[in-house]
Amino acid sequence: MSLSSTVDGGRRLTAGRHTLGLFRSELRLVFGRARTQAGLGVLAAVPLLIGIAIKLSGSDGDAEGFLGQVAGNGLFLIVASLGLSLPFFLPTAVTVISGESLAGEASLGTLRTMLTAPAGRSRLLAAKMVALAVFCLAATMTIWISGLIVGFILFPVGDVLLLSGTTVSLGEGLLRALLIAIVISLSLLGLAGIGLFVSSLTSTPLAAMAATFGAFIVLGIMTAIPQLHAIHPWLLIYRWQSFADLLRDPPYWHEIARNLLVQGAYLVVFYTAAWARLTSRDIT
């Protein structure tokens, strides 16, 4: 293509190509912040602390579950850390980042500038959601990598004992741990969707974070009340623990699929609600 034809087309010709610029910029905004890096740092410390605690206590597999297997096989540090981060650390991180996403821009006033740039409201929302999804994956992968490093340094590593009593190679074990990290990051998407929606309602990021975390706590309490068992399958975190089904032989997909369907349902509902809110909202 000659130079003149490129110039000729001007903006129109290249218009479609630059759509990704906003998404890249959004990732820089999320991951460039000290707050995000500190959060990922805390998550990276989880395997380290667990690993050191187990090493110091010298316990040799007395504990039940994945924690008890760490001393025998460092690979289980990944699984145990992911499992232990799931009820609190990971949701907290997702709550902070998602609560910040739109409310943060609104409170800074940059939302105005972004919209007159123009970013386009639907497109900006999509970029925010993609960045949140990438953050969810980054958060679980941080634990995965940290758990891998710490586990391999502190503990012996070898073939992996599955829940069903069969043993698979270390490579397959790592692959399954990776799948667990991915499944857990997908499990966080429903919460991220709620956070994004709440964030679209307010111009105060702290309020958005508090409300999102409050919703998470309420869902947790509802999941713990047996009388509500009829609606349990619909609750966001009811099947969060199903990631462990990946350690069966063969993996049991039913609950994982259900969990992901529930996450998808929450995501669709709250994402479209955030869309309705953002596209109809007066930006002041």
Binding site: R11, H18, G21, A117, P118, R123
Partner: peptide
């Protein structure tokens, strides 16, 4: 960042 938000910007 603001320029990246505009998809027509080179």
């Amino acid at each position: 960042r603001f320029d990246a938000a505009d998809r027509t910007a080179d």
